[in-house]
Design a protein around this nucleic acid. Structure first.
Length: 225
DNA sequence: AGACAGGAGTGCCTTACGTCA
DNA sequence: GCTGACGTAAGGCACTCCTGT
């Protein structure tokens, strides 16, 4: 990769802007992180659209981040050790929510644009979306859990009922064995269609696509009753 | 003081892409 | 030219910390 860039005579650009960069801020120790000087080493011309967007985002960050930081007052850059927690305004949150409703992930372009509108750093928009996705998923998991619990209760009750019915049938069979003239037992509608429709089918196809990792386990599990 | 909400940091995984043998 | 192994970058997610309410 590096060699390709060198061969093509591409410039090694030092751009300011962690906002659009990855979140591995190895150059920023925890204590020093707050001001986010947007320092990232960027290889210009990686040759993809995404890269171009990244570049634009970096350019935006380099040009406006300091002003944005001032506006946002997210952190005290004086290096006092303790960082100030950013509180998004209602308007900022509303706009973010609006975008999240439409799309839970952002392209670089969208991220940069949204950051500009909100006077935030792209990184902050990115983090907000990450947290939003995580917390939405958590809520959904709780809902699914509740659903599964109820499904389990229903099935347990159904199981009990079927056991009773089985006992009844056995008794009847025993009775018929000794009294052949007895009428045939006609199963009730409930007996015929007593299987939970969600449980009767095969597991979802995607479940077998790959081994259930820690991450996919819950998603796979909650997909079916 | 403790619970909670939510912004942010970090490590790992996956994917895409380029290079090389 | 094709292919598989390998390296790197980037994005997402899970987990966690920490601060303000």
């Amino acid at each position: 990769m590096f060699m390709a860039h060198e061969e093509a005579g591409l410039a090694l650009g030092l751009s300011l802007g962690s906002g659009a960069g990855h979140h591995h801020h190895l150059l920023q120790p925890k204590e020093a992180a707050p001001p986010e000087p947007c320092l990232s080493l960027s290889l210009a011309g990686a040759g993809t659209v995404k890269r171009e967007e990244e570049e634009r985002a970096l350019i935006y960050c380099s040009a406006a981040s300091s002003a944005a930081d001032d506006l946002v007052e997210g952190y005290n850059s004086s290096g006092g050790g303790s960082r100030k927690k950013l509180r998004l305004t209602k308007d900022q949150t509303a706009l973010l929510e609006d975008h999240f409703k439409e799309q839970s992930t952002l392209s670089h372009k969208q991220k940069a644009s949204l950051a500009r509108q909100l006077s935030l750093r792209p990184r902050q928009v990115e983090v907000w979306f990450q947290n939003r996705r995580a917390r939405t998923k958590l809520k959904q998991t709780e809902v699914d859990c509740e659903l599964l619990k109820r499904c389990c209760e229903t099935l347990t009750e159904e199981n009990r009922r079927l056991h009773r019915e089985l006992q009844h049938l056995r008794a009847l069979h025993h009775h018929q064995h000794h009294h052949p003239a007895a009428a045939f037992f006609i199963p009730s509608a409930a007996t015929v269609a007593s299987v939970c429709p969600s449980c009767s089918g095969a597991p979802p196809a995607h479940a077998a696509d790959r081994p259930a990792t820690k991450r996919t386990f819950f998603a796979t599990k909650s997909a079916a009753c």
